[in-house]
Amino acid sequence: MYNFEYNRPASLDDALKALSSGEEVKLMAGGQTLIPTLKQRLAQPSKVVDLSGIAELKGITVEGNAVVIGAMTTHATVAASAEVKAKIPALANLAHGIGDPQVRNRGTLGGSISNNDPAADYPAALMALGATVHTNKRQLAAEDFFAGMFTTALEEDEILTKVSFPVPEKAAYAKFAQPASRYALVGVFVAKTSGGVRVAVTGAGEDGVFRVSDFEAALSKNFAASALDGITVPADGLNTDIHGAADYRAHLIGVMAKRAVQAAG
């Protein structure tokens, strides 16, 4: 790992100042992706700004019909949260299935979605639940936030602060985990909301998370696994790698979507 300057601000304002210092700055949340990336020299920032000292970026609250989670809240905290378990148990389950216990103790919601790994779990939850991403200067719908593989709408001088998840009528996440990494080979989040059913897929798309409108239309009419019989997802635009070919992933999307619908009850 090349050396860098390390900075741990105690407030969002100080973090923004550090971010606009003109150097090549990387923000660090839990570091569970960034530190391995630095070790491999895939990133060589001159300065790392550690956000872990900023109290206002942590915590979980229920505001109206939404669960609001601070960007620096760890996966372990989300998984164990009584509020999340009561309001959106599917989200607690999703957090519980990320990585391993030690990664969940450090890794954060904000870090995960800012990195937007195409196989990360959280992007599927944000897209299916119709979450709103809050930054220091604006609010974005999940759809407008995720902008392709490892890419988001976040600007150079912008810090993600929290995510607001509307509480669905019911929801579930079903993941076919890659056995070694526990990343999603295919993960499908299904949410039944007052505005209809939303289905989001992670792990499969070349451009990261995406929704499946054919599944949504069928499930909005009849929220049952059998409603998906005969509807296939095209393999175009899906990933092929050593773990699975695009057509295999396309098949898995249907299987995992049915499992999610069944789990949602």
Partner: peptide
């Protein structure tokens, strides 16, 4: 050294973490 194996697990304020994926400065 890639946060997979867990041979480096220690506790920080009582929580288990992989010490190969945490900076000393943190």
């Amino acid at each position: 050294d890639t946060s997979q194996c867990g041979a480096c697990v220690v506790h920080i304020d009582g929580e288990s973490v992989k010490s190969c994926t945490v900076l000393a400065a943190q």
